[in-house]
Amino acid sequence: MNDKAELVKRDETTPERSRQIPAVAPVVDIYEDNDEILLHADMPGVAKEDITVNVDNGKLTITGIRKMTATGAANWAEFGDVEYRRIFSVPQAIDVGKVNAELRDGVLKLHLPKSEAAKPRQIEIKAA
């Protein structure tokens, strides 16, 4: 009697077993000059449509998904489908509206311009 009730209540869904693609952090170079911060990230095989760049609340998130298309059986495979993901803290001084990104030969180049207030300024000393 008790068992029966338990059987009825049990939901029929099997636990989902989707193939997880590994998430890895892409290697990056970060440069800075007076006007902007420049970020280069290696993301080979990721198409432009599969990259998202998100700036929110001082966090810059870069993600990109690589889907490999190949014919035939693999004799060896050293790389495969992967999700590139990396999060950076960005200083408040970044002008979020002017951030722009370009993707070329599997390298993402992100320009993060500094806002006017954050640019270094030379202070002139007035003669008394």
Binding site: P44, G72, A73, G106
Partner: peptide, 22 residues
């Protein structure tokens, strides 16, 4: 760089990761 080799019957296919190279 890392590579993959696939055998598709009539041909082989090699893929290599070469980000930033022209």
């Amino acid at each position: 760089p890392r590579t993959n080799l696939y055998d598709a019957g009539n041909h082989f296919e090699i893929k290599a990761e070469v980000p930033g190279l022209t």
